[in-house]
Design a protein around this nucleic acid. Structure first.
Length: 299
DNA sequence: AAGTCGTGGTC
DNA sequence: TGACCAAGACT
């Protein structure tokens, strides 16, 4: 396992957030929590989750309940169409899947309200499948840590995420990435506290594309430990604070600096070569810049 | 593929 | 204070 994974897993074993839905791993509970969490803050879901399960303890009870009752339990969460879809999904599971939430991603995605993310979440959290689940947090963490970009979207981030899921540990891994994204690798990141800072392209050689505006808080350089120091790539001084969309100069350069875990360098280089071979990224002549497919945007 | 869907918190 | 935002899905 690359040091990048090890650092995150190690941190997670000791510091995982104790969230109600992490105390349950049955497919129905996962389906409920992940649906509630779509575009909804964790703090808002926490009080609703247990009450909802108390009211509808099984998928059958949800399927049989009147929609009005479901919507009542949903009130305060917003996006009420999610409740309708969840209700419909419960009915579909009873009718078409013999009451068992399907394992297969393709089956999961036929359920109303279950998109790519939720399907991956159910497959990994409930069934332990080696599936990625890319939400905004996971996308941000992987984009920054592995590509040095602030946020990659589109198919590229899914391809990347799928390739770095550790076999047999997808559930823990996906949870861990979410915690890192929520606690440290936020839009305004706290790199100094991040368990992956020494394995991260972003914290060692990058800088977020900062939205201008007073409310965005202090610059990353005020918090990040390694920014501001000079780095070298092919004998050339690299300014650590440049925000050019590029790969890790540290990871690709021959001169690996002490603040980037050495064992990650080979792994990351191999990963990037793989991505390049498969056309998911394109490296320039200096192997210092990366282009992405047209549907992989950077925000 | 850009718009829409809800709510409550933040500053 | 109003604009922005948060474990996305759907059309």
């Amino acid at each position: 396992m690359p040091a990048f994974h090890a650092a995150i897993i190690r941190w997670y074993r000791r510091n995982a957030r104790d969230l109600p839905w992490r105390r349950r791993s049955d497919p129905y509970s996962v389906l409920v929590s992940e649906t509630m969490l779509q575009q909804t803050q964790v703090a808002r879901v926490i009080p609703k989750f247990e009450k909802f399960l108390a009211a509808f303890p099984t998928i059958a009870s949800l399927a049989c309940a009147p929609l009005a009752d479901v919507l009542r339990m949903w009130s305060g969460l917003g996006y009420n169409s999610r409740a309708k879809r969840l209700h419909e999904t419960a009915r579909t599971v009873l009718r078409d899947f013999n009451g068992q939430v399907p394992h297969a991603i393709d089956d999961l995605r036929t359920l109303p309200g279950v998109g790519r993310y939720t399907a991956g979440a159910v497959a990994s959290f409930a069934y332990g499948a080696d599936e990625a689940a890319v939400d905004v947090n996971v996308g941000r963490v992987l984009s920054r840590a592995l590509l040095g970009k602030d946020r990659i979207t589109g198919s590229a981030i899914w391809e990347l995420a799928a390739r770095v899921v550790p076999r047999g540990r997808a559930s823990m891994w996906n949870h861990a990435l979410m915690d890192v994204g929520a606690l440290f690798c936020r839009p305004n990141p706290d790199c100094a506290g991040c368990p992956a800072r020494r394995n991260c392209v972003f914290s060692t050689s990058g800088k977020p594309e900062r939205k201008t505006g007073a409310r965005r808080g202090r610059a990353l350089s005020a918090k990040a430990p390694f920014l501001g120091s000079r780095r070298y790539y092919r004998g050339r001084v690299v300014r650590a604070l440049t925000c050019a969309p590029r790969l890790s100069l540290l990871a690709l350069g021959e001169q690996v600096k002490e603040d980037f875990a050495a064992t990650d360098v080979a792994w990351l280089r191999d990963l990037l070569a793989e991505l390049e071979r498969d056309g998911l990224v394109a490296l320039d002549a200096n192997r210092a810049h990366v282009r992405l497919p047209t549907d992989a945007r950077q925000s």
